[in-house]
């Protein structure tokens, strides 16, 4: 498997779950580096080190797809992912020590209930619909870029989003009444 940094980025930006799976398998090779750094930063529990590392891999993938991680000549993906894990740990350990009060939430009760129902509905969509909504609404992928990556015209991509939204609203309907 080609696990060079440029190839990992390329895999993460390709459509399809096979490429994503390969990228994740490559990223898992960073675990030893992450565990070493977390241990040096005082995290003794192995299972917690593992959990933090797994979360950091997820966070790294999100950052790549949101365009927040740009590969330069000096960039090293393992170092970057490991640093995400270290920061998570430092944030957590500070929170644990200070027993900081919960930050006030910015969403209202109604919004939270709506989010819950929408989340449930989203999980009932097929993969294609969920993928395009995620690309558009979460990753903020421009329509043209999505269309290009998936071999679609601009209009076809727009229709695909529109249909996915309609199907989502259909699922939500019974709960709305």
């Amino acid at each position: 498997m080609n696990c060079t940094d440029p190839n990992i980025i390329a895999l993460l930006l390709q459509p399809g779950h096979e490429a994503e799976l390969q990228a994740v398998q490559c990223l898992m090779k960073c675990e030893a580096q992450s565990a070493g750094l977390l241990q040096r930063n005082g995290l003794a529990d192995g299972s917690e080190r593992r959990s933090l590392f797994l979360e950091s891999v997820a966070e790294f993938i999100v950052q790549v797809r949101k365009g927040k991680f740009v590969l330069t000549g000096a960039a090293k993906i393992c170092t970057y992912t490991t640093e995400i894990a270290r920061r998570k740990w430092l944030g957590l350990s500070r929170k644990t020590k200070d027993v900081a009060p919960e930050a006030p939430t910015t969403t209202s009760e109604n919004e939270r209930e709506r989010d819950e129902r929408l989340h449930e509905a989203l999980l009932q969509l097929n993969d294609t619909d969920r993928d395009i909504l995620t690309a558009f609404y979460f990753y903020d992928l421009p329509l043209d870029v999505y269309a290009q990556r998936n071999g679609l015209t601009h209009d076809a991509a727009k229709k695909r989003i529109s249909r996915a939204r309609e199907r989502l609203k259909e699922i939500l309907k019974p709960a709305d009444h």
Binding site: E20, V24, M28, E55, A58, T107, E111, T134, F138, Y139
Partner: peptide, 25 residues
């Protein structure tokens, strides 16, 4: 609806990624 969709796609995607990573692990 759009704001809710932005929050929920984020939540669902992060959960999906974590599940995928755990399954590879």
């Amino acid at each position: 609806f759009t704001q809710s969709l932005r929050r929920t796609t984020e939540k669902a995607e992060r959960q999906r990624l974590l599940a995928l990573i755990e399954s590879v692990d």
